[in-house]
Amino acid sequence: MQRRTFLKSSLASGALLMAAGAGLLKPTRVLAAEWNKDAFTAKDVASAVKAVFGTSDAADSDKIKLKAPALAENGAVVPIKVSSSLPDAKKMAVVIEKNSSPLAAVVDISDGEPFFSARVKMGKTSPVTAYVMSGGKLYKTSQEVKVTVGGCGG
């Protein structure tokens, strides 16, 4: 009898675990937008940018400011800062060209200024590009960051 009840309870909890694993029990807070898996797993810049903005044609603009070190000694921690004076900028992205998955971050701004700062990992010397979508058009600015010790893989 005891064995029977044990089996029953373990079966029930097993089913619950499986349900949780399959994502049936959703977390209470639903996030505003899903993580863009296609864009973040894209292996080249053009397809990553296209997955984020819907287009990969970007014009160079001096209205985007990208602050990054010219020489980063440690590729595991490269501080970058993006800001823009473009009007109606609602979406920004940071792309590191030579990383195995180039897209590092996407920012959706609904109530604020186009500004983003973070520290990124870089595998090797590569141009870092900041994209800003403004008024239906895509703008970019780019800077080369030299890396002496890589921060990816190893």
């Binding site: 973040f40 990383n99 998955s101 609904s110 983003f116 973070a118």
Partner: peptide, 27 residues
């Protein structure tokens, strides 16, 4: 979120450094 309303929504990849320090400007 500012006062319960989302002001900025940031998506990150694994290429952000560990112990990420993220900065944004919100109204």
């Amino acid at each position: 979120d500012v006062n319960g309303k989302t002001a900025a929504d940031v998506s990150l990849a694994g290429s952000i450094s560990k112990n990420p320090l993220i900065g944004v400007h919100v109204k």
